[in-house]
């Protein structure tokens, strides 16, 4: 359902993601672990475009969320002047066309040869066409992807109930009455029915995070992204938030979780990803991931955290 294709993210000179690809299927619970500064959060935030990838594409089902990255489409590369020129220079009788094409495409990708301007009309219109056909409204896409933040980010100017109903009512997903009924049911489910009219500043971290989770659920998302949901919590409160997340997982919610909670990864994940230096270094089922790690950096990491 989410398809992240070869994304790079640079903040000025600092490159945080160096070509990450990952497909997330419906129903999966993907847990991303790794050392701080390894690009985990940035990767997650690229999925709903809170960070805009410098290169690469992000797709939600059939909808494109980013601009077209020409390097990812060989049928676009072959339309470029750079390709045509290289092909003409190298093609002689007896050379296999297919093979030469592959070779040149590989070289263009490897050496970053496509220019921003001057690649010709065919190339430009092909990009435009593909973009127009697939681009979806980013706000509608985000509404399908819930997000839970490390620092909760409840709207401080609104009561708990308004925090929950604001977006679905504003975006006309639910009527106000429906939204209130749904919010109350969700609050009861996480044991916070009595906090309906409280302001966020009066709540504990664990309470805030549980509300942040049900606020995301109000939009009926198809997937929820968790960005270190327990990292800012007192140790005592970690359990209550994790248990809400485990319940969600049991119900079949698609989840992508960046976390340091290895126990949660072992118990809930269907796939665990290890990220370091802006790359996916290892990706496996939790059993294999924890019992039989391959990457040396992962082995070192696990020996420290387990």
């Amino acid at each position: 359902m989410i398809n992240v294709n070869n994304i790079y993210k640079k903040f000025g000179d600092l490159s945080v993601l160096n070509g990450v690809s990952c497909k997330i299927e419906r129903g999966e619970k993907v847990v991303i672990v790794g050392p701080s500064g390894g690009g985990k959060s940035t990767f997650l935030r690229c999925m709903n475009l809170l960070e805009f990838p410098t290169y690469g594409e992000v797709w939600l089902d059939d909808g494109l969320l980013t601009p077209i990255d020409p390097y990812l489409h060989r049928d676009i590369i072959v339309l470029s002047n750079t390709f045509k020129k290289m092909f003409d220079e190298r093609f002689t009788d007896g050379v296999d066309r297919e093979l030469l094409t592959e070779e040149i495409i590989a070289e263009i990708k490897h050496k970053d040869l496509l220019k921003e301007h001057g690649e010709g009309k065919d190339y430009r219109s092909a990009i435009k066409k593909l973009y127009k056909e697939n681009l979806v409204d980013i706000n509608q896409a985000r509404a399908k992807m819930g997000m839970v933040f490390q620092h909760f980010n409840l709207f401080n100017n609104m009561k708990v109930i308004d925090n929950m109903i604001f977006a679905p009512v504003k975006l006309k997903k639910l009527s106000k009455e429906e939204a209130i009924a749904k919010a109350r049911a969700l609050l009861a489910r996480v044991g916070l029915a009595d906090k309906e009219n409280a302001y966020p500043s009066t709540l504990s971290g664990g309470q805030k995070q549980r509300i942040a989770i049900v606020r995301a659920l109000m939009m009926n998302p198809e997937v929820i992204l968790f960005d270190e949901p327990t990292s800012a919590l007192d140790p005592e409160m970690v359990g209550e938030v994790l248990s809400v997340m485990k319940d969600l997982a049991k119900e079949g919610m698609t989840m992508v979780v960046v976390t340091h909670e290895m126990g949660f990864a072992k118990e809930v994940a269907t796939r665990v990803i290890f990220m370091d230096e802006g790359l996916i270094k290892e990706e496996n089922t939790p059993e294999e991931f924890f019992n039989n790690p391959q990457n040396p950096r992962l082995k070192e990491f696990l020996s420290k955290v387990l």
Binding site: L50, F149, F155, N156, F166, A167, M219
Partner: peptide, 21 residues
């Protein structure tokens, strides 16, 4: 900044987030 991010992540437009949150 997290307030804006939370609004945008829910699918609200930039202007809706600005004026209401």
């Amino acid at each position: 900044k997290g307030q804006t991010e939370a609004g945008r992540a829910l699918g609200l437009k930039g202007s809706q987030t600005l004026f209401n949150i």
